[in-house]
Amino acid sequence: MAAERKVVVLISGSGTNLQALIDAQNTPTLPNTRISLVFSNRKAAYGLTRAAQADPPIPTAYLALQPYLKANPGKTRADYDAEVARVVLREDPDLIILAGWMHILGEGFLELVDGIKPLREGEAPRKPVPVINLHPALPGAFDGANAIERAFEAFQKGEISSSGAMMHRVVKDVDRGEPLIVREVPIIKGEPIEAFEERLHKVEHEIIVQAAAKVLDEVKPLQT
């Protein structure tokens, strides 16, 4: 029997992309795969409720930057990022997916998940764990926040005819990692932003599952 593949998902909001992953786990689109933890940096994120209501329920964790800094005087944003990495890596995941995660993770996180630094002093670094992110824009366009709104505005000005969504590997530079799956989404003249957004989200729900399957097949292929 093929070994189970474990995934940790990081969220900040309603979790519709998380829901796509929940629905796909252990189906032909994402076989032998279990989401072992959903982690949020917002206490009120509805994605935590989605995880709790899944069958079987998915464990959740929450840690926000400002409360962490307040509770740990002298600690920095890099310390927070490292703490997020420690919580996530305790699950021993095969893959980490950022699905609407609205906090830029710096080297404090990446050095631990990439196996450059150990989790604790005196320990050996762990094997690297791939991290992938969903971004609602095409590679090199509209990096960072509010990508959908910025693309829609650029279309109104006649600067672009379409936008899209991509799944990419996470590196230090925001939204600049190697694209894994890229899908173009046209913007239709005269349509409201809500209609464009709805079509874009449908594409996101497909590519987040496809990219997860692609990377899991690289790091932990199903035994034949």
Rank of each mutant, 00 (worst) to 15 (best):
G47K: 12
L48M: 11
L48W: 10
L48G: 12
L48Y: 11
R50C: 08
A52K: 15
A52Q: 14
A52H: 08
A52N: 13
Q53C: 09
P57N: 10
P57V: 09
I58P: 03
P59G: 03
P59T: 01
P59V: 00
T60W: 10
T60Y: 10
A61S: 15
Y62S: 11
Y62K: 09
Y62M: 03
A64E: 15
A64G: 15
L65Y: 09
L65I: 08
L65P: 05
L65N: 07
Q66E: 15
Q66L: 12
P67I: 09
Y68M: 05
Y68A: 03
Y68C: 07
K70V: 14
K70S: 13
K70D: 15
K70H: 13
A71R: 13
N72D: 06
N72R: 15
N72I: 06
P73D: 10
P73N: 12
G74I: 12
G74F: 10
K75A: 15
K75I: 06
T76A: 07
T76R: 02
D79I: 12
Y80G: 07
Y80N: 05
Y80V: 03
D81C: 12
A82P: 03
E83Q: 12
E83P: 01
E83W: 01
V84F: 11
V84W: 06
A85F: 04
R86Q: 11
R86G: 02
V87G: 05
V87F: 10
V88F: 07
V88A: 09
V88C: 08
V88S: 04
L89G: 12
L89D: 05
L89C: 09
R90L: 03
R90W: 00
D92M: 00
P93K: 00
D94F: 02
D94M: 01
D94A: 01
D94T: 00
L95G: 01
L95T: 02
I96V: 14
I96K: 01
I96L: 01
I97T: 01
L98T: 04
L98K: 01
L98E: 03
A99L: 06
A99V: 05
G100Q: 03
G100V: 04
M102G: 01
H103F: 10
H103T: 06
I104D: 02
I104Q: 14
I104A: 11
I104N: 08
L105R: 07
L105M: 14
G106E: 08
G106M: 03
G106W: 05
G106C: 00
G106P: 02
E107Y: 06
E107F: 03
E107V: 02
F109C: 09
F109Y: 12
E111S: 15
E111I: 00
L112V: 02
L112H: 09
L112R: 14
L112P: 05
L112K: 13
V113S: 04
G115A: 04
I116Y: 07
